[in-house]
């Protein structure tokens, strides 16, 4: 058995390994290399050392502004998405009439692509703002809250499903015991429901965190950075740098490397916490 496995190992692994090399490892290494060069296409790169990285942190570059905007957005949307999703999940596990129908309804927006959603919400938001005689490009605040609204609309349904699964896993006996002991609803929520859905909370928390942090299409379609570049998030800023100015492809690439490090850091923290939870439960 062992021998057969060994013999077939290359056949089973080779395709995936090849795909991994072609689609991930090689571009990734090239990408890091390119961040230290000046290039127009990937084949005519000239080494420039740390110039690109220095350029990112000089005044006049939008990277730090985009980073700050992204952090603000991520914090706000992570909190709102999870609170709303959790409340909906609680409601929809109470056995009310039409529960299944509403679960489907809330999940639906998740099936629409980000670009389409962005344009739809742009129309809706502009429709409302036209009452004030302005549109979404008028102020960065409109763009910010528009993005938060859009992200909630898109992610709440998905997170709700995860919370529902978590809630349904809690055994009924716990609640029975609590009610016999005379616990009030808030106490039940605080001391039974919340601790027992902690694994779902961790998952949802990090899903929304990374989703919001890496957001591109919604940002591109809804505001495209307007007004000015005030509502550009990191991914969009990288895109604009890379394609917007002749000769700054390298700077865009360097930004992408920093972006990768930030996302990898987030993912690392996520992994750490999820693992810890797994031991607890």
């Amino acid at each position: 058995m062992q021998k057969t496995l060994k013999r077939y190992f290359p056949i089973f692994v080779a395709p995936t390994l090849l795909a991994f090399l072609i689609a991930f490892a090689i571009p990734f290494i090239m990408g890091i290399y390119l961040s230290f060069t000046k290039f127009t296409t990937v084949t005519n790169a000239q080494f420039v050392g740390l110039y690109n990285y220095k350029q990112i942190f000089t005044a006049g570059d939008h990277f730090l502004h985009a980073l700050w905007f992204t952090v603000k957005f991520t914090v706000v949307s992570t909190i709102t998405v999870n609170v709303i999703a959790f409340c909906l999940a609680l409601l929809l596990t109470k056995g009310l009439r039409g529960t299944h129908f509403f679960r489907t309804v809330f999940f639906m927006p998740n099936l629409i692509g980000g670009i389409v959603l962005g344009y739809i919400w742009q129309l809706i938001i502009n429709g409302f703002l036209s009452g004030l005689g302005v549109d979404i490009t008028y102020s960065a605040n409109y763009g910010f809250w528009g993005l938060v609204l859009l992200t909630n609309w898109q992610l709440v349904g998905y997170m709700m499903i995860i919370y529902i699964a978590g809630l349904q896993n809690i055994s009924k006996e716990m609640y029975e015991a609590a009610s016999i002991d005379g616990a009030r609803p808030m106490q039940v929520l605080r001391h039974i429901t919340l601790p027992l859905v902690m694994p779902s909370i961790t998952i949802c928390f990090f899903l929304t965190l990374t989703n919001s942090f890496k957001m591109f299409d919604q940002n591109y379609a809804l505001t495209a950075g307007a007004p000015g570049r005030e509502t550009s998030m990191l991914a969009l800023d990288i895109f604009q740098t890379f394609y917007g100015s002749v000769g700054s492809e390298g700077i865009g690439q360097a930004k992408a490397v920093i972006f990768f490090i930030l996302v990898a850091l987030l993912a690392g923290i996520q992994l750490y916490f999820t693992r810890k939870r797994e031991v607890d439960v």
Binding site: S139, A226, R229, V246
Partner: peptide, 21 residues
Amino acid sequence: FPSQNFKSDFGAALLQYAQGN
């Protein structure tokens, strides 16, 4: 004109001027 980013930023500023910002 030096780049697309230059033009986009100028265009965005024109919009903000039109909006009174």
